[in-house]
Write a protein that binds this DNA or RNA. Structure first.
Lengths: 166, 166
DNA sequence: TTTAAGTTTCAATACTTTTTGAAAGTTAAA
DNA sequence: TTTAACTTTCAAAAAGTATTGAAACTTAAA
């Protein structure tokens, strides 16, 4: 396998991975391209490399910047914007956790709080409340755990989890 | 809020949550319905409650069984199959981790192993290999961590993570 | 056997999400 | 100012995913 093929395979796979993580294929591919680029790339270079439209490239670069996975870089004397990827995987994962927690966990916690106040009495209501309470408990634990992870640094993360492996 | 409304809201929200987790909306809604059902439900009851087609119900119930999130239950003297949900959230999360790890992490690890063998010399190749190696390292750590989590029981999980929260 | 209750499959359809491309907007230099 | 390089927006089209419903299949009891 030569370099060009390796790069193409990586971009392709990263795209597939991203689509499982709330990052659409193009967005993940742009991130992959920037990860393995030796220098900051302009929007035009991204468009040419991935063969996508200008609109698509622009939208997804903005989204990546929003997620904190890509940074804008300006070169003196050049009007173009250049882009570089966050290359520290632990930072990447943390950013993804932050976004997904907000989009996924927080809404369900909110709903659980609301419905745990359902009115009425009887076996059926009690049973329902019990199920909801269990899930609520689990969700708030998950939420705290993720908050800790987000605050933690990589060294801490690695050493804690490495201890788990016998 | 009364019981019926609470149940409807829960089913709806669980469906939305699922769709972020590789579980499609209907699949997650069936799981939610079974979670809060006081008794095992037949396919027909699922169809009626959620107002979905027989084919859709069947496909998604099979998928839930496949994922280990729902179990088949047979009543003596009754040809219908009845279904109950796994209600232990920790078990649910573990099953989801197992499936998603297989679908998401393992393919990228495989690709990384392949492309880390790219041929050629020069600055560019070395730089590429370095980036890939970093991601490889991170991925295998993530893989081990998830394996440990899958083997761990809930008590262990909760106590370990609770310690993280100051 | 035959029947009927129940389950599974799958091509067609509906729905959702992503992508395009052209037009509008912005801004630094001439 | 005006120009031109570059960025952003957004409606329409394409691509991808989920759902339906009818037909085929399975199986236990009559």
């Amino acid at each position: 396998m030569d370099l060009a093929e390796g790069k193409a395979r990586f971009i392709q796979s990263w795209g597939t991975l991203g689509s499982h993580w709330g990052i659409n294929r193009t967005m993940a591919q742009i991130h992959a391209l920037l990860l393995i680029a030796e220098k900051p790339l302009s929007a035009q270079e991204v468009i040419d490399e991935l063969d996508i439209s200008r609109g698509n490239a622009n939208m997804n670069i903005r989204a990546l910047i929003d997620w904190g996975l890509v940074f804008k870089e300006l070169k003196p004397g050049d009007r173009k914007e250049y882009f570089v990827a966050e290359k520290d995987m632990w930072e990447v994962v943390k950013q993804v956790i932050i976004h997904r927690k907000k989009k996924e966990l927080e809404p369900i916690v909110k709903v659980l709080n609301e419905i745990s106040g359902v009115e009425g009495k009887g076996e059926e209501v009690e049973e329902f409340k019990k199920v909801i309470k269990d899930i609520q408990l689990f969700s708030s634990k998950a939420d705290s755990t993720l908050n800790s992870l987000i605050k933690a640094d990589q060294h801490w993360f690695v050493s804690t989890f490495m201890n788990m492996i016998k």
